[in-house]
């Protein structure tokens, strides 16, 4: 591969722009849940590996230990698109907990938002290292 000086400079200039666009997408995904409301930090238990070998199947458990939750949303900060999943709980669910497996493209922070039954919101995040990314194409 031949790298021209101009091409290299242009790609270096484009890097921060791409990163900013990504951050905007994450902010938009968070705002879609918050809709102008504020979320309290913490109060969500997240069980995930510190380093996941396979980004295609990253086990994660999400739990609001001390309150009833209506929904839990999971947002990726460094996937091609931020959406991972939204879970909704209805009467009959014994506790605000869901265990699943998610797909991560690279090491990143995963944001978890919980909507509680009393209308308040909580936010937590976890850093997950990924050895082999879950996105090939």
């Amino acid at each position: 591969m031949s790298v021209t000086r101009r091409g290299l400079l242009l790609s270096l200039l484009a890097l921060p722009v791409a990163a900013a666009a990504e951050a905007d997408a994450v902010r938009a995904a968070v705002e879609e849940v918050l809709r102008g409301r504020a979320a309290a930090e913490g109060g969500i238990e997240i069980t995930a590996p510190r380093v996941a070998e396979n980004g295609q199947q990253v086990p994660i458990a999400l739990r609001v230990p001390d309150a009833e939750a209506r929904a839990i949303h999971v947002i990726a900060t460094a996937n091609p698109t931020p959406g991972i999943a939204s879970f909704r709980f209805h009467p009959g669910i014994a506790r605000a907990e869901v265990q699943t497996r998610i797909r991560l493209a690279e090491s990143q922070r995963v944001i978890v938002l919980a909507e509680l039954a009393d209308g308040t919101l909580r936010q937590a995040a976890v850093e997950i290292g990924v050895t082999t990314g879950g996105c090939l194409a």
Binding site: Q56, Q57, V58, A61, V74, A76, N79, P80, T81, G83, I84, A85, S86, F87, R88, F89, H90, P91, G92, I93, A94, R95, E97, V98, Q99, T100, R101, I102, R103, L104, G134
Partner: peptide
């Protein structure tokens, strides 16, 4: 659904794993 009423829903987006697996707790 449980006895016809909604119990749990997951909106699966791009970050869904292959062969997705979910665990919930129900009374």
């Amino acid at each position: 659904t449980m006895n016809g009423a909604p119990l749990f829903e997951a909106e699966l987006k791009n970050g869904t794993s292959p062969n997705p697996y979910h665990v919930i707790f129900v009374r």
